[in-house]
């Protein structure tokens, strides 16, 4: 192994956002699929109330997260790239079994591999917006009240419900794969540790500016 250094990869808000979002999405899935009558846990009425409250919490969280991404410049992490994309896919399909090293170097300025960039960007600009929009439509769905409110008229819930349910299936599948891919880091738990503590051992790269130059990362790890 080459030279590694312990660096703060995930800042405080980032971790708070990640874990709160993780909890909310799982909670929304549980209550949502109960509303879908897939199983019974809280009871339909409670499930609806909890689902709606969690939805608002997630929307508020997303607003904060968007603000954070813009002001911190972290949004650039999700710029898609085709560089190493094929190599990354090959790594997951074959390389990982042969213990070959990760094709993409993880650095503070580029935390995501090209596959992650694509998938997370897809979540951020497609799946989450579709879920929020269809969810709000679901929440504010009103049958046309004798034509009084014309602009908000929705004749039927079916299309909204189908979109929202499909998005939910996609998100559940994402969570399953995401949870598994946590274990594919440098060690089995290094990704998980990093998202909990913020700190991760990363290879030092001479070509990139040293993380020590960043004024934010002055505190020492508290592991």
């Amino acid at each position: 192994m080459s030279n590694t250094k312990l660096v703060l990869v995930y800042k405080g808000f980032e971790r708070f956002w990640h874990w709160t979002q993780a909890f909310l999405i799982i909670f929304l899935a549980v209550t949502g699929f109960e509303i879908h009558s897939s199983f019974s846990l809280f009871g339909f009425e409670t499930a609806v109330n909890l689902h709606n409250k969690a939805a608002w919490a997630l929307i508020i969280l997303i607003i904060f997260a968007i603000f954070w991404h813009i002001t911190s410049g972290e949004w650039k992490q999700y710029l898609p790239t085709t560089k190493n994309l094929k190599a990354q896919i090959e790594f997951y399909l074959t390389g990982i079994f042969r213990n070959t090293p990760h094709p993409t170097k993880k650095t503070v300025l580029s935390k995501l591999n090209p596959l992650q960039r694509l998938v997370y960007l897809g979540l951020k600009i497609l799946v989450i917006p579709v879920m929020v929009m269809s969810g709000l439509a679901y929440m504010f769905y009103r049958y046309p009240q004798a034509g009084i409110i014309k602009s908000a008229n929705m004749e039927d819930l079916e299309v909204i419900a189908i979109i929202h349910t499909f998005g939910a299936f996609v998100l559940v599948a994402f969570v399953i794969v995401h949870l598994y891919l946590i274990t594919t880091g440098h060690t089995i738990t290094s990704n998980l540790n990093a998202m909990i503590t913020g700190w991760e051992e990363l290879e030092e790269d001479e070509n990139e500016p040293s993380v020590n130059d960043e004024p934010v990362f002055v505190t020492e790890p508290k592991i």
Binding site: I35, H36, S37, F44, D156, L157, E158, A161, I162, T165, F166, A168, F169, V170, V172, A173
Partner: peptide, 18 residues
């Protein structure tokens, strides 16, 4: 369509397999 009562069986099959 009524939530809780109705489902789109094609969508639910796709979702289940996904």
């Amino acid at each position: 369509y009524m939530p809780g009562r109705d489902q789109n069986s094609t969508l639910d099959t796709i979702g289940k397999w996904l």
